[in-house]
């Protein structure tokens, strides 16, 4: 019995690459906590506690301080906040995420076409030719570059380059997500069953015709799933991009912080969380629907 177990244990699947990666990761994490200096601090504990106490004390809405707790007065305070800035900010945040994902989806899928190696090699399976290398290589490099630069960095750079309107935020989200959607879509296109493509190719169809008649209909469902999955993250990112100075949720958070109105700040942060949760629910519902109809 014991021998069998040992045999079974020895025969378990294992790869040295994964073991090495785990070791590197474990060493890195332990190093950061032992030698990274994250646990040492330059502020004293007392100062920190005072800071925290002041912060927590100011979380209570300014108008309601000194009153005893009453849920109705809190609700009416929240209602005024929503009427003053909340609805407008929520709408802008949502609009930024929608505009960005539509733009990013279009751009990403356009880039995914040259980036998928089967399209680039003219649906000629088995051998990768020069055109595949020249087309798919640069397209993939561009996609990687787009997605490695964070949205916030894109937004920061574009804001000064384009000027203070909603474009920088939309473009920043769109560029980053185009990189991700492009990669995912290219993988979907490459992993489709290739019989339809090959038979169309043998009857003399052009690349574009194969793309439109064999690839797109078969891939559409998965592309839409990715689209909505990325929209969720877009909503999440859109809540903060306003911090750079364009009026949306993040702007009011930054504004409240600058004026030390911590009650307003926490209100907008929680409003952001609520928007993200609503986005998640909508996206989950739509994705279930798409899985059902396709």
């Amino acid at each position: 019995m014991k021998d069998h177990l040992i045999q079974l244990y020895r025969a378990r699947p294992k790869t040295n690459f994964v073991r090495l990666s785990l070791l590197v990761m474990a060493l890195l994490i332990s190093y950061t906590w032992i030698g990274g200096g994250f646990l040492s601090s330059n502020n004293s504990i007392i100062q920190r506690t005072e800071n925290l106490e002041r912060f927590v004390g100011e979380l209570k809405p300014y108008e309601l301080r000194g009153e005893s707790f009453n849920i109705y007065s809190y609700l009416s305070w929240a209602k005024t906040m929503m009427a003053e800035k909340g609805w407008q900010a929520a709408e802008t945040t949502l609009a930024i995420s929608v505009a960005a994902i539509v733009l990013g989806g279009i751009l990403g899928n356009l880039l995914a076409i040259p980036a998928s190696r089967n399209f680039a090699s003219n649906f000629n399976r088995d051998h990768l030719n020069l055109s595949a290398l020249l087309l798919a290589g640069p397209a993939r490099l561009l996609l990687i570059f787009l997605r490695t630069i964070p949205e916030y960095v894109w937004a920061f750079l574009l804001l000064s380059l384009i000027g203070p309107n909603a474009w920088p935020l939309v473009l920043a989200l769109a560029l980053h997500n185009a990189g991700i959607i492009g990669k995912l879509s290219a993988e979907v296109i490459e992993n489709l069953p290739d019989q339809p493509q090959v038979s169309l190719h043998s009857t003399g169809a052009s690349r574009l015709q194969i793309m439109l008649t064999a690839v797109l209909p078969a891939a559409l469902a998965r592309l839409l799933l990715f689209f909505f999955y990325r929209w969720e993250t877009c909503v999440r990112e859109a809540t903060i991009l306003g911090m750079l100075g364009i009026v949306s949720l993040g702007f009011w958070i930054q504004d409240a912080r600058a004026r030390n109105f911590y009650d307003e700040m926490i209100f907008f942060i929680l409003l952001g969380a609520l928007i993200v949760v609503i986005g998640d629910v909508i996206s989950t519902l739509v994705r279930t629907h798409i899985r059902r109809i396709f």
């Binding site: 800071n51 925290l52 809540t239 912080r257 700040m265 952001g272 969380a273 993200v276």
Partner: peptide, 20 residues
């Protein structure tokens, strides 16, 4: 649901700047 940068801002006001 709360973005990491918002957590960072929250901690920044609650504790002051600290790497931890």
């Amino acid at each position: 649901s709360i973005h990491e940068l918002l957590w960072a801002v929250l901690f920044l006001v609650a504790f002051g700047i600290s790497e931890l």
